[in-house]
């Protein structure tokens, strides 16, 4: 089977596992495409492809979210590819959470080559506004998505009682089914 490992879907699934946000939640930011393109351009297609192949392997070998997490720690951070893939995976999380791209570590840049726009920066105003960190902490990005007068007077939500159980996975499975 000659599947190309460069689809936005693969990227979003991996992102979902890395960030703890469901595929739907990530799509709901409207940034799946642009984050995909951003990362691919910054690290280069071949390295990016390597990351997604690795993800595909983890996905195929893991039955549960727990197994996928273990797989990520082992295959992306702990394997012989760790120093190549680990920093990218971390940057993907930073990108989704903060809307910032962080310059790749020095050693990485030396060893694998640096793109011209591999600079620490806010990727876009939208990426900032849609940063996942605010949702994770049940707050709102400064100067955007304001919650309305007096909303702060109420106790913060505690979504994790409910949310923890259902974060992501199901859509991933649905898609897997379709593609096999």
């Amino acid at each position: 089977m000659s599947k190309r490992y460069d689809s936005v879907d693969d990227f979003v699934e991996l992102s979902s596992e890395l960030t703890g946000f469901s595929v739907a939640e990530l799509e709901g930011t409207g940034l799946a495409e642009s984050h995909f393109t951003e990362v691919r351009e910054l690290v280069g297609e071949r390295i990016f492809g390597r990351l997604l192949i690795t993800w595909d392997k983890i996905r195929n070998e893991s039955k549960s979210s727990k197994a996928r997490q273990t797989g990520i720690h082992k295959e992306i951070f702990g394997s012989e590819w760790g120093d190549l893939l680990g920093p990218i995976a971390l940057n993907i999380v930073r990108l989704w959470y903060l809307g910032n791209w962080f310059q790749m570590p020095r050693e990485w840049r030396h060893k694998y080559g640096a793109a011209a726009n591999d600079q620490t920066r806010v990727v876009s105003a939208e990426a900032y506004r849609e940063g996942l960190v605010w949702d994770a902490i049940c707050a709102y990005p400064t100067a955007a998505k304001q919650p309305g007068f007096g909303s702060w007077a109420f106790p913060p939500e505690d979504p994790y009682e409910k949310k923890a159980a259902t974060s992501r996975t199901t859509k991933t499975r649905a898609r897997k089914k379709k593609s096999t």
């Binding site: 596992e17 890395l18 703890g20 720690h73 702990g78 999380v93 902490i137 994790y160």
Partner: peptide, 16 residues
């Protein structure tokens, strides 16, 4: 050492 990042739903919840 940066080798053992907190990821996924653990990251999300720990942040909260």
């Amino acid at each position: 050492d940066g080798k053992n990042p907190v990821l996924g739903s653990k990251l999300r919840r720990q942040l909260y």
